[in-house]
Every structure is written in structure tokens, then in C-alpha cells.
Design a protein around this nucleic acid. Structure first.
Lengths: 338, 338
DNA sequence: TCCCGTGAGGTAAGCGCTTTCCTAGACCGT
DNA sequence: ACGGTCTAGGAAAGCGCTTACCTCACGGGA
């Protein structure tokens, strides 16, 4: 048990053949090889517990096979769902997907892009939201271009500075649907729990909400839009502020389900009926009480399509696929009788 | 935009130095270098957008830095939580964690072990449950030993065939706590929704449940133990069977929270009060209605400890750390008045 | 003046594999 | 029997990097 790996040369020596022959047998190359040699080599592989060095293979083959994925946080159900789709397609294509969590930090995202670049991945999928800050977005775009310049493929989910293949969840329309639902139920005083202001996802959903407000001629003052961090606890805190500051509010639109669940929790003890609509329609939505009305985004599909784009050859024109949002009515929203 | 990466040699040529000097400057080697050269090299790096080839580096340095993680499914909140802990520690140690989903298929797990081995990771953490089937477990153990023989480190979470460093959630005790809780509340007719029978996690939790039954002198016939697949929908189906077949059952112990949530959902329309206790105390537990009583396992900590074991040098003796389970009472269980 | 020590930089030998040639038999037809 | 065509297998040239070792120039002490 010496801490050293058996190499192809060891196997070849053990079997009394050249490394060329050993390599050909092990990789099932089309070149014909006598059965006797084949058996000897395979026996040597088994005996030495030989496992080829993937790095050496990469280097020698200079043919990229892995793909990289950058998400904000896999353990967030939103990204978990997307990642499932990404993985499914990557695996069907026989590729290892390297998943990186940026935790919504642009710097970490930059680092990971370079890391994936360094690891010679064939493609990178950016599944996290884009950043509104122009400088940040430009830096990211710069690194992505460098990667593309070496023949790497890129696909992004959502609105990013980067021009190229993308799949776009219709966040603006989703925001519109959410707010419209509330307004059409007679709620005229609503509050919004938005995500981090730096993200394009937040901005787009909010734009939709505002459009609905205009259409229904409702006021939606800035103070009624409370930013939180897309987590349950963020939702709890935001809801508490809303309850304290706006006694007239009868409905809350949370721009993702985690925050909506937090809102429901905060509302539980509040003794004041407030309707809540979420966004993303994550699996928990149907299991909370009241079951959460939400705007559904086909997350797994989002992931699948992005990975398919990333794995297909680059097109002349950037391809942009839109995927629609859809309202899912459950018990957390109701008509306001007046 | 020719699809080719700039190499160190390109950078060196561009800056008019040797590759040795370029390498030293780029990696900040201790060897002193004139400032003029340093500046020229750095400028060349920027201009050529040079990113070192990680595979070539690995090969040249023969010093392993990445770590591998095998879980059943990251998008399962149970593993998401564990993974978070694993990642946190790996990152603090400056290592890339490669995460692989086995989806509870031993073959895929085998494949991934070899893949990680091939990628020269420094350590592998197996976060999924072990398998009861001796042949399967032995095959896995065999591959793990091969990896260890090359100097790789291994840490497992839960009971596995593999002898070595491990962190053990006290599943047996947890199962006992769950069942004891139910029995002590006066429920004598209980049913169990167990996980896949092939997993050690299922077996251990079940053992604890049976011990509690013996202690409380309750019968727990085999038919009352329904196996499902650790998912919400599995829980729904199992509960429907239980409701149909066992009219006297007043409480259900589900061996994980996902299935417990499914049970709650199935019970919602059943018009029959049945207490439910879950296992793992995942975040959703407090947001379902009724809030789920569960057995808490400190999942993030589990992950952190496992990764710490994996990253520390091998000890003479296998190190086994136990982590305790703890009952968390909420509203889904109540005293049975008779 | 000579020698040696020292410091900056270059040379080249691998790391473990794949793959392109090349070689040397075996086999064929005439 | 002879040249020509295949064929199975081997030799060796990289893939892009790191690093041990070497070289060369300069300076200072004896």
C-alpha cells in the first residue's frame, strides 16, 4: 500500500506489451489487437487496480469533455431544480458536470469562471441571476468572452450582460401575473417583498409588478417594496416590517417562494388576514398552509434547455429561448370583500 | 477568435523570457525575479488572456488538491444541507469540491468513485447511505480501498461496509426516539413509512423503532411497515395504503421528513386524525401544517465533520464520530385520549 | 589577479497518457 | 521463389506545465 498510483507503463510492463497497445486495449480503440494480449492487459489492469489518470488523458487528447455549471446555491430549491435539469442533459451526453456555488458573490463567480476555464471544460452554464451593476457585469462578460475565444461554449439562464445563447424565464411577465392576480382579486393596497436589488431577476420581476400596478391604476410607493435576500428568514423579517408599517396592506407579493413561505410563517401569529403570492412554484408551495399561490416557472426544463444550448455547436446568431411563467392558484390568495 | 488556448509558451515568447521564468512569476514562486520581467510577463498574461491549463498543472505538480463528494441527490434537502457543510469546509481549505449524484444507484456510485479517483482528488466523501446488500457493499469497498491504496483519503457518513474514518448519525437512537415519542403519547397502533429497504439508513432507523416497540410492549407487525422511496410522493402513496388497510392506526412514523410531508398531505383529505412524526428536521418541517414533529439531525455539522476527517491526515486507527439525534416536538403529534 | 560565492535566468527532464508514424512478419498472387 | 499488400504491435513525439539543475556575469575577499 504505497501511496502511488499504478500507471499505464506499469500495466504495460506487467502484461509485457508496449504502452501503446495497453492504451489501445483499455480505451477500446478501433485498432485490432490479438485476444491473448487483450486478456493479459486486462488482467494486469485488474491486478494493479489501474485507474487512468484523467488529467494526463485530458492533456494528451486535448478534447474537452466536462461541462461547468455556476449557480448561486445548489441547496436552494430553486437552483436544485434547475440543476437537476442541467445534470440530466449533461449526463445523457456522457459528460461530468462540475457544479460551483457562487453564493451570489460576483467575485466568486469570476473565480469559478476562470477555474472552469482552467479545467478545460467544453461549456459553462451560468444559472444564477445576472447583476445590474454595469461594472460587475462587464467584468464577468470579459472573462466569459476570454473563455469563448478559446472555443468554449456558454449558455446563460436569465438576463445577463453577456450576449450569446440564453434561456430566458419570463420574469417580467411573471411579476405582472402575480400582481395582476392580487389586484384583480380586489386587493388595492399591496406590498412587495423583493429580492436583492442588485440582481436582474429582482429587477425584472419588479418591473412586471409595476406594469400591473399601472394597468390597474394602483399606487405602489417605493416604501412598500421591501428588499430581502430571497430566503425564508428574509421573508419573515420583511413581513414583520410590512405588518408594522402598513396597516392597510391586505396582500403581499413575494418575489420567490422561500420568502413567501417566510411571509406565511410571520403572518401565522399576526391575527390579520393577508393574502400572499409567491414566485417559482417550488415543491413546498403545495404543502404549506395555506397552500401557496405562486407563479410557476418550469425550472427543470429551464436547466435542460440551457444545457442543450451549451452542448450544441455555436450558432451564427445568439439563440434566445423564452420560457413562459404561469399562475398557479392555491389557498393563500382570496378575493377581498369590501 | 481562433479556438485555441494561449499557453505558457506563448506568454513567455510574448514577454521575451523562458517558460520557467514565466511560470515562476505567474505562480509567485519564491525565486526572485527582476521587476521589469515580472511586469512584462504580467502584461503578456493580460493581453493574451492566458489561463493556465489545470490538467497540465496537475500532471506536473502531482499534488492533489480537489476533493470529491458522492451524495444520493443534492437537490434532496437532506443532502443539500449536508453538502452545504461539506462545501463550507472544503472551501475554507481552498479546495474545489466535485459533487456527484448517485441517485441511489450503486453502479453509478462505483463509476463516480473511479471517476474521482481518475481525477486525482485528494479525498472522497461518501455522504449517501450505505447498502445492505453484501455484494454491492463489497464491490464499493473494493474500489474505495484501491483509491486509498494510492494515498487517497476517504470519509463516509453513516454506516458503510468500508472501514475507515466515518461520522455516524445516530439513526438507531433517532428511530427509537421517534417511536418512543408516539408510544409515550398513548398511540399503541402505529404504522411506519420506511425508506428503501436496501439502505442501511432505513435499516438502522427501523431497528430503533423496533426497540422502542419492545420496550413499550407494542406489537409492530411487518405489514405495518411500508417501504417507500424517501420522497414526498412515496409518503403520499404509503399513507394511502396505511389508511386503507389499517383503520386502527392513530399515528405514523415516517423515516424522513419528505415522506412525512407526503403523509400530512394524504391525511389532509382523509378526515381521520392521525399523528405524524418525521425524521431529519428539514427546514420545511416548521412550515407545513400541522408543523411537523421530527427527529433532528445536525446535517450541516455532519457534512462539516466528514469533510474535516477527509482532509486531515489518516490516523492509525479509523476515527468514528457519533452525532446524536434529538426529538423536536411540534404540532403533528399529540396525546391520544382514550 | 584569481577564485569562489551568489543571484538571475534559462535548459530540459519529466508528469501519464494518446496517437502518428514505422517496422517486421504473414500472406497473397504469379 | 519473389515482390507487394496487409497486419499487429512498438517507438517516440508531443499535450502544457513545474522544477531541479545548470550557466553566466558580477563582486568581493585574499
Amino acid at each position: 500500500m504505497s501511496p502511488v498510483m499504478a500507471t499505464l507503463a506499469d500495466v504495460a510492463r506487467h502484461a509485457g506489451v508496449s504502452t501503446a497497445t495497453a492504451s489501445r486495449i483499455i480505451n477500446g480503440s478501433p485498432k485490432p489487437v490479438a485476444d491473448a494480449l487483450r486478456a493479459r492487459v486486462l488482467a494486469a489492469v485488474a491486478e494493479l487496480k489501474y485507474v487512468p489518470n484523467a488529467h494526463a488523458q485530458m492533456l494528451a487528447r486535448s478534447h474537452r469533455s466536462a461541462v461547468g455549471v455556476i449557480v448561486h446555491d445548489v441547496s436552494d430549491p430553486y437552483f436544485a431544480e434547475i440543476t437537476r435539469g442541467l445534470q440530466r442533459v449533461a449526463e445523457a451526453d456522457g459528460r461530468l458536470a462540475i457544479i460551483c456555488n457562487s453564493y451570489r458573490e460576483p467575485d466568486r463567480e469570476l473565480e469559478y469562471i476562470d477555474l472552469l476555464h482552467a479545467h478545460q471544460v467544453a461549456a459553462i452554464v451560468i444559472a444564477g441571476s445576472g447583476y445590474l451593476d454595469a461594472a460587475t457585469a462587464a467584468r464577468l462578460d470579459d472573462r466569459l468572452r476570454a473563455f469563448e475565444a478559446t472555443g468554449g461554449r456558454i449558455a446563460v439562464i436569465g438576463r445577463h450582460e453577456h450576449t450569446g445563447d440564453a434561456v430566458m424565464p419570463d420574469n417580467e411577465e411573471g411579476g405582472f401575473l402575480a400582481a395582476e392576480h392580487l389586484f384583480s382579486l380586489g386587493h388595492s393596497d399591496i406590498a412587495v417583498i423583493a429580492g436583492p436589488p442588485a440582481l436582474t431577476t429582482t429587477a425584472d420581476r419588479l418591473t412586471g409588478v409595476r406594469r400591473a400596478a399601472r394597468k390597474y391604476r394602483r399606487r405602489l410607493p417605493k416604501e412598500r417594496i421591501v428588499h430581502a435576500d430571497f430566503t425564508r428568514d428574509g421573508g419573515v423579517a420583511a413581513t414583520e416590517r410590512i405588518l408594522a408599517e402598513f396597516p392597510s396592506v391586505t396582500a403581499i407579493a413575494a418575489l420567490n417562494d422561500s420568502m413567501a413561505v417566510g411571509a406565511l410563517a410571520a403572518l401565522r401569529g399576526a391575527g390579520r388576514p393577508v393574502a400572499v403570492i409567491g414566485f417559482d412554484d417550488m415543491p413546498i408551495a403545495r404543502d404549506v398552509t395555506p397552500a401557496l399561490t405562486s407563479v410557476r416557472l418550469p425550472l427543470t426544463e429551464l436547466g435542460e434547455r440551457a444545457m442543450r444550448l451549451a452542448l450544441s455547436a455555436a450558432a451564427d446568431e445568439p439563440r434566445v429561448e423564452h420560457v413562459a411563467a404561469e399562475l398557479v392558484r392555491r389557498e393563500s390568495t382570496w378575493r377581498l370583500e369590501d
